[in-house]
Amino acid sequence: MSIQHFRVALIPFFAAFCLPVFAHPETLVKVKDAEDQLGARVGYIELDLNSGKILESFRPEERFPMMSTFKVLLCGAVLSRVDAGQEQLGRRIHYSQNDLVEYSPVTEKHLTDGMTVRELCSAAITMSDNTAANLLLTTIGGPKELTAFLHNMGDHVTRLDRWEPELNEAIPNDERDTTMPAAMATTLRKLLTGELLTLASRQQLIDWMEADKVAGPLLRSALPAGWFIADKSGAGERGSRGIIAALGPDGKPSRIVVIYTTGSQATMDERNRQIAEIGASLIKHW
């Protein structure tokens, strides 16, 4: 067993022997301040990774656009098919120029040779490549099948209805392509620590998230040296922004954090800054 596999296998073990965790309302004060600064709703939840206990939450059962955070769930569904012998990570998928959609920095470079399922998941999570996500959605049967996968996990809230990039439209009061912070946090925890996926697939999923290259201005910008984070960000229309993450000190994750916002007129930089400040408060009061 590799060191990384050992780390993920012992996530519940280490967490069980940690000192009790206590909620700190100071972080919620910052979440509410972010709402004021952005002029928009902000949803927040913080779960203990081992027990699933909610440590703090704000608007945990209000719907927010998922945006690209759905790509972690998508690759979880792909990995479940791999575990069941219905898919192979090494299978190569070929596609054409007509398949390319807006923001496809990886797939646009491989029109000639195609990409493997493993490479597509890596591109979808680490670079948020939209064509990679659409190609992977095709392998599982489309958005409705991802929703069905989530329902089978016990998540009857999260739903995907459309493809990239239309799913980022974020129309107010439109339930399409949305989740709730509580539902997303619980589902992410199941994917990373539950028995739904094999140990190898859980490790692969967290490795992809740990290698995320496009979430630097968010929670990662607030992390002290030595902290662990595996995350996936999302951005959408109407001032929408979000991030889902597993993080913790001492090089291992111990909490799940989900943050979503929508309806702001603020710039992307300002949305990023507010999420980073929430992260800084979380870490300060850990």
Rank of each mutant, 00 (worst) to 15 (best):
S2Y: 12
I3Y: 13
I3Q: 11
Q4H: 14
Q4C: 11
F6A: 07
L10H: 06
L10T: 14
L10W: 07
I11W: 12
C18F: 06
L19E: 08
V21D: 05
F22A: 10
H24T: 15
T27S: 07
L28H: 12
K32F: 08
E35L: 02
E35K: 03
E35A: 07
L38V: 07
G39K: 15
V42G: 01
G43I: 00
I45M: 13
I45A: 12
L49C: 08
N50H: 12
N50F: 12
S51D: 15
K53H: 13
I54E: 11
E56R: 09
S57C: 09
F58S: 10
E62A: 09
E62G: 07
F64W: 03
F64I: 02
F64E: 01
F64V: 04
P65F: 03
M67C: 14
F70K: 02
V72T: 09
L74I: 07
G76Y: 05
A84V: 13
A84F: 09
G85R: 10
E87W: 05
L89P: 07
G90N: 13
G90F: 10
I93A: 04
S96M: 10
S96R: 12
Q97G: 13
Q97A: 13
S104W: 01
P105M: 06
P105S: 05
L111P: 07
D113N: 12
M115P: 01
I125Q: 02
A133D: 00
L135Y: 03
L136V: 08
L137K: 01
T139L: 11
L146C: 05
A148Y: 13
F149A: 08
N152V: 10
T158K: 00
R159G: 04
R159N: 07
D161I: 04
R162G: 08
R162D: 09
P172W: 09
N173M: 15
E175R: 12
T179F: 00
A183H: 12
A185T: 03
T186M: 15
T193I: 14
G194D: 13
A200H: 15
A200Q: 15
R202A: 10
Q203H: 14
Q204Y: 09
D207I: 10
W208F: 07
W208H: 03
W208L: 06
M209N: 00
E210L: 08
K213H: 12
L218I: 05
A222Q: 14
P224A: 05
G226A: 09
F228I: 08
A230H: 01
K232G: 00
S233L: 02
G234R: 00
A235H: 02
G236R: 01
E237F: 09
I244R: 00
A245I: 02
L247K: 00
P249W: 04
G251A: 12
S254C: 14
R255C: 03
V257Q: 01
I259Y: 04
Y260Q: 02
T261H: 06
T267H: 11
M268G: 07
M268Q: 08
D269L: 12
D269E: 15
E270Q: 12
R271V: 10
N272G: 05
E277M: 10
G279R: 01
A280T: 11
A280P: 01
H285I: 04
W286I: 05
